[in-house]
Design a protein around this nucleic acid. Sequence first.
DNA 1: CTGAAAGCGCTTACAG
DNA 2: CTGAAAGCGCTTACAG
Lengths: 336, 336
Amino acid sequence: MAARITIAEIAARAGVSAPTVSRVLNQRGDVAADTRERVEHLLAEHGYRRRGAPAPRPWTLIDLVFDDIDSPWALEVLRGVEDEAHGLGAGTVVSAVHGRAAERRRWLDNVRGRESGGAVLVTTGLDAALRAELQELRIPVVVVDPAGGADLGLPTVGATDWAGGRAATQHLLDLGHTRIAHVAGRPDLWCSRARLDGYRAALDAAGVDLDRDLVATGAFDYRSGFEVTSRWLADGAAPTAVFAASDQMALGVYEALRQTGRRVPDDVSVVGFDDLQEAQWSSPPLTTVRQPLDQMGRLAVRTLRRITDGEDVASPRVELATELVVRASTAPPRTA
Amino acid sequence: MAARITIAEIAARAGVSAPTVSRVLNQRGDVAADTRERVEHLLAEHGYRRRGAPAPRPWTLIDLVFDDIDSPWALEVLRGVEDEAHGLGAGTVVSAVHGRAAERRRWLDNVRGRESGGAVLVTTGLDAALRAELQELRIPVVVVDPAGGADLGLPTVGATDWAGGRAATQHLLDLGHTRIAHVAGRPDLWCSRARLDGYRAALDAAGVDLDRDLVATGAFDYRSGFEVTSRWLADGAAPTAVFAASDQMALGVYEALRQTGRRVPDDVSVVGFDDLQEAQWSSPPLTTVRQPLDQMGRLAVRTLRRITDGEDVASPRVELATELVVRASTAPPRTA
DNA sequence: CTGAAAGCGCTTACAG
DNA sequence: CTGAAAGCGCTTACAG
């Protein structure tokens, strides 16, 4: 291995004495700003490390960052990330930044105080500022199912949302439904748009006209699924099937139907999206589009590892396949 | 602060020269076994640190260890732990050891390669061997809702399981039920026994005879709730209410009732235990006994912190209060 | 704000 | 397997 660079060598390059470099290293105040900057730059450039300090063991830890840990969604990603990292001998540091700048800063401060082999971001609040700060920390970053929008040039892992939306809708069409409602997800996320477009594409291909009254926007959560469906029922929109863009919204749909005395799937069929564990545990078990969240987490970790190893990460965005999982919440419409 | 102990001082105490101590420190082979042992002991005793190495920042990280991350249960604990630790400036390293010795060893190896401010264990596989290894690492340990059994002398955080079991049963009695079944939890965990005893105590106090056919043992998971209930219904046991020792089992109860055409709560009332988020999202929303899992996680972190700060941890076991949360899955029995 | 000199802590190369 | 001596890397105390 290359001999470690010493303070004396840095001093020579910077045209100062060794004590001056030492002062910069030890954060003493009595150094001219421009001298300090020059020295710090050289220190960073040559990867200076104090003599006693052992070279930091790489990949002792990786970071997994969520906006919030309150969704079962997060659990599935965590399980994949933890297991893959564990297999590589790394621990997984989990953080929730709640989309707040102060929390984000606190996380960054924490990372600075230790080593991190890389960060898997599962956050919709990814902007250029955060990107710059991460770059400064020099740790690899991979994004799981991001808001998209601005292409930040980071490797991302997603799922085939459009194909999933199409498959869910096609399943309902195949059962004989034509009045198929859609509860879309948060409009600021690309994945919502892709699922909606898949829904439309399936209807188009089947020659079924889109009824705009049967498309409403939710926020991916239980409450919005409940509210949107309650409104439809109150307005007499009467869909025979509902495709919700998340399992949690689908469970809200269930409850709205139950409260009005309707049965799933006898009166209305319901399809979700995600295949959280909740989908198996609902009554009836939910037909849904499986998004391999754990696999997405695993792939994100492997990608971090490949970046660390200096391999080329071929594609900036990888989409893992979604898959329709048919359970007991879908059936032919009553009138068929 | 006390001046750092030097190699020279250790050497003097050990009756050897400084170079010998240096050799021990750098893992060189050419040191007599007894000399090495004597020196290593002194090194550890005086907390020797190399000159360059900055004193490790305490509380940069804490550890949270599960058997498995697959339960929503884990998510609630994680949320509390992460938030409390984050507030104290610490990151949370999450590990799943799957009850396997090899995974446990891997985790311990990982901890050895970094600093840890302490470990919160949410594991049923806590034995004397693990206890000894943790002691060697010299990090504080707190256990959340442990299997109990052997008292390992570690601070633990639990919930008032007995009171919770009693409250759930009393609620059903108050509604007029007398044929109240109980799906108990894993018999190897004390919390299961406590909930069962609470159930019995409530029946006793109300003068209702316990029907042994209406008590069955589950494994806390969805499947066992489903199976136990299906068996009851097939056997004609016909309870008018079921108290399940976990929310996940309660959801299994729901499904068994649905598959036999019974409605909750019209035909059978159901009460769970935990108050996972799933309890709010089920149809109908589940009446359950809230166990403040997030608060238990928070308290565990604060306890670690107090141990670190040298404060006395007064009680070896703290139980946080459970609370009955009445939703829509309970109603008076039909015949009442 | 900076450097020459002294000195501390640790390691290395050599000798036995 | 161990130590006396030399020397390296870094910091400290002083001077300007």
